[in-house]
């Protein structure tokens, strides 16, 4: 079954979707190390429900909803070679979490999300399924390094390992590959930005016929410029709504001409943006880029929202994109 994407203002998601009860149960089983048939079945049912919601909202490029992943760094750390989990580390107040520890040389020895991609693609009625991977910079900075003691070496190995997963995903038919680097906007050092670009080169630099996307959000996004303009990506996926589209001015200043993932939905608020409000955001994006280069999507993953809110937001987003296309026509 094929699906024809709109030529302008394609709608998409960043990756995660609120967990369905099946996913929550699966995450509990995973924590207990029980990854047998029941676990896989629960994950599949959760993915199916996420895809169903995307289709019902009318999103053009969907994802698997990241229903298998509780934490974007811990998940890949559990699947890649070389990691273990740390003791508890405080994140705020008396709330603690386990950080990934790089305890040995990082490597890839099995497919991680390929089967989830295949499954989502079977259900998506021809709509492309975007796959999302946590990038080397975020993996490194959110981990504790006990092996390398050298960020560059660690990141290049991480990039190599993730490139193997990407290769497997592309072989399985994935055409939208998104590398998530939320940590990149929290540390403003220039050398980090350059290194992240080099790591991206290892992962997606040689890919053709694939949409290469990097997602970054919340922080000092302006510090990624101008280096990010030379990153080997086709699309930069940014949070915009939360920062009141302030970054658009910066994109204009740098004559940004890659595709833009335009965040038009605040994922930290349960308030559902109206269609008009979203159209206004799209309008701001259209002031700097043609509609063919704008992907309309939420600021970030939707997993912190209630399902009802997430679905309502997506519906309004799709409707806003549709009306904006009509206006353009």
């Amino acid at each position: 079954m094929s699906y024809e994407l709109p030529r302008k203002l394609v709608t998409t998601v960043v990756g995660s979707y609120p967990y369905f009860p099946e996913a929550l149960k699966a995450l509990q089983l995973r924590k207990r190390g029980e990854r047998g048939r029941e676990y896989e079945e629960l994950v599949r049912r959760a993915i199916a429900r996420a895809v169903e919601d995307y289709l019902s909202a009318g999103v053009d490029v969907v994802s698997d909803g990241e229903q298998r992943r509780e934490d974007m760094a811990v998940f890949f750390a559990e699947e890649l070679r070389g990691f273990r989990l740390s003791g508890l580390v405080r994140i705020f107040d008396n709330v603690y979490y386990r950080r990934p520890v790089i305890a040995d040389r990082v490597g890839w020895d099995h497919e991680i999300i390929v089967e989830d991609f295949r499954y989502a693609a079977r259900l998506s009625k021809g709509r492309p399924v975007k796959v999302t991977l946590t990038g080397p910079y975020t993996m490194y900075t959110w981990s504790l390094d006990r092996y390398y003691g050298d960020m560059r070496k660690a990141m290049l190995d991480l990039a190599e390992a993730l490139s193997r997963e990407i290769k497997a995903l592309v072989e399985a038919g994935a055409r939208y590959i998104q590398v998530d680097e939320p940590a990149l906007s929290t540390r403003p050092r220039k050398e980090d930005v350059i290194l992240a670009g080099e790591a991206l080169g290892i992962m997606v630099g040689k890919l053709s016929n694939v949409k290469r996307i990097m997602h970054v959000c919340y922080g000092k996004l302006e510090r990624l410029f101008p280096e990010v303009l030379d990153f080997p990506i086709d699309q930069l996926d940014l949070e915009m709504k939360n920062s009141n589209y302030a970054l658009l001015e910066l994109l204009k200043e740098y004559s940004f001409d890659k595709e833009l993932g335009l965040g038009v939905i605040d994922v930290h608020s349960e308030r559902v943006e109206s269609v008009d409000e979203i159209m206004e955001g799209i309008g701001l994006g259209l002031e700097i880029l043609p509609p063919e280069k704008i992907y309309v999507k939420p600021d970030c993953g939707l997993k912190r929202l209630s399902r009802e809110t997430a679905l309502a937001k997506l519906r309004n987003m799709v409707e806003a994109a549709r009306r904006a296309r009509e206006e353009l026509a």
Partner: peptide, 8 residues
């Protein structure tokens, strides 16, 4: 030392 586990 809040950024690392107790044992470390």
């Amino acid at each position: 030392l809040d950024y690392i586990p107790f044992e470390d």
